[in-house]
Design a protein around this nucleic acid. Structure first.
Length: 125
DNA sequence: TCAACAATTCGTCATGTGTC
DNA sequence: GACACATGACGAATTGTTGA
């Protein structure tokens, strides 16, 4: 059993986007980095623009046009989904590395606190 | 080796949001 | 309001893991 041939993505870039804090912030106007809209992509090779309205007449032509539009929409959405997932992965990666940095920072602060406590506590002798 | 299950990946649909 | 785009949800296909 074989899936229909599809484009392989697999390419993950290691960019370092500035990330916005919340994914659920759309209503407030700020959105996470992976949600920032990219400029509309050009149509892939071989894809033609729709015939201008008014040049279609027969029901068959109309049906073909509808099919063509649907395929175009599916293709665009397929690509959009891929891009969306790529951005989301990047976003998660970035969050994870931020967690790692903060954990190190936190550990250092705790150590520093212990040192200061030692210094400031009255000597017991 | 292989079946069973879990995890991952992908395409599609539905829906929310921004732009004109 | 129509349109385009982004994304969550879902199911199907694929891939990885594990115990017999």
């Amino acid at each position: 059993m074989q899936k229909p041939v599809m484009a392989v993505t697999g390419d993950e870039t290691d960019e370092d986007p500035e990330l916005a804090p919340s994914h659920m912030a759309a209503a407030t106007g700020d959105m996470p980095a992976y949600q920032i809209r990219a400029p509309a992509t050009a149509l892939p090779q071989g894809m033609m623009m729709a015939a201008s309205p008014g040049t279609l007449h027969s029901p068959q032509q109309l049906a073909e046009e509808a099919t063509r539009k649907r395929e175009l929409r599916l293709m665009k959405n397929r690509e959009a989904a891929k891009e969306c997932r790529r951005r989301k992965k990047e976003y998660v990666k970035c969050l994870e590395s931020r967690v790692a940095v903060l954990e190190v920072q936190n550990k250092k602060l705790i150590e520093e606190l212990e040192t200061l406590k030692d210094i400031c506590s009255p000597k017991a002798d």
